[in-house]
């Protein structure tokens, strides 16, 4: 049975595209057949993060407008033959596609893929509506910052109004050193506020920048963020995986602080 998952956040720059690339690649590494759809028409980036930008001939708008077949527009990943990308159009805008067309497309792709992942643009306008139209479930990405969390809360409300089956939270770019100092909200704080199931915590990791530079997702590597993404993939598949031991480094002081509270 295939599943359509939208990766969204509301706010820009919190790591939707990086998360899409890593979760998509990770699921393909776990032998699932995966297609990643970049729905950010006009500002495409998933192709660059995956290192496939030089292979684009047709795009999402071409498919929707019937200029080519879906199979012609799908780009096979360099490393994982189970992984495909449907790139977005660069010279068009969000109004080139409608929610109905997106739903039709994702339904069509269900026949051939286990997972259809949609990388959603920032904002709550047409691009967002397109991305969630055909989705069964959502991964909401946020960082532990007030602006990102506030936007995530709005998005969660909108997703609920659209009756998605399941909505899970990914906390991205957590900095344990700052959490320890008390200068960043911790995982519990964010979960308490947003009150949806947590599916992953990804530490802030400079290897992410390196991997984006190279166009090769970090998932599966030994880097902490790579492990965190792989764990998310296992949880997406419904497996129980313990959360990474980011907290262990929390140290004596903050534990003492908790006792005092």
């Amino acid at each position: 049975m295939s599943e359509v998952i939208v990766i969204t956040s509301g706010k820009g720059g919190v790591g939707k595209t990086t998360t899409s690339a890593n979760v998509g690649t990770g699921l393909a590494m776990l032998n699932k057949k995966v297609v990643l759809i970049d729905t950010d028409i006009g500002l495409r980036n998933l192709d660059v993060v995956l290192g496939l930008e030089n292979r684009i001939v047709y795009n999402l708008v071409d498919v929707v407008e019937g200029n080519c077949k879906v199979s012609q527009a799908l780009i096979k990943d360099k490393k994982y033959p189970n992984l495909f990308l449907l790139p977005s159009a660069q010279t068009r805008d969000k109004t080139s596609v409608s929610p109905e067309q997106m739903k039709k497309l994702t339904d069509e792709l269900r026949n051939d893929f286990d997972y259809i992942l949609l990388d959603c643009p920032a904002g709550i306008e047409q691009g967002f509506k397109n991305a969630i139209a055909g989705a069964d479930r959502a991964l909401v990405v946020t960082t532990p910052e007030v602006s990102a969390i506030r936007d995530a809360d709005r998005i969660i409300g909108l997703l609920a109004a659209n009756e998605l089956k399941q909505t899970d939270l990914i906390i991205n770019r957590l900095r344990m050193d700052m959490v320890k100092r008390g200068d960043m909200m911790n995982v519990e704080d964010v979960c308490e506020i947003l009150a949806i199931p947590l599916i992953g915590v990804v530490p802030d990791d400079e290897q992410i920048v390196v991997s984006t530079n190279q166009g090769e997702p970090l998932v599966g590597s030994n880097a902490l963020a790579g492990q965190a993404y792989m764990n998310i993939c296992h949880r997406v598949l419904g497996e129980e995986v313990e959360f990474l031991d980011l907290d262990k480094k929390e140290g004596v002081f903050s534990k003492l602080a908790k006792i005092f509270k």
């Binding site: 532990p144 910052e145 007030v146 969390i149 506030r150 809360d153 709005r154 409300g157 700052m178 959490v179 100092r181 008390g182 200068d183 960043m184 909200m185 911790n186 704080d189 506020i193």
Partner: peptide
């Protein structure tokens, strides 16, 4: 009060009024 706690408290209030 740490800035993390300040953030949490501000958000709690903000989100309730947002919601």
């Amino acid at each position: 009060k740490s800035s993390g706690d300040i953030a949490k408290d501000r958000l709690k209030l903000l989100l309730v009024s947002d919601r």
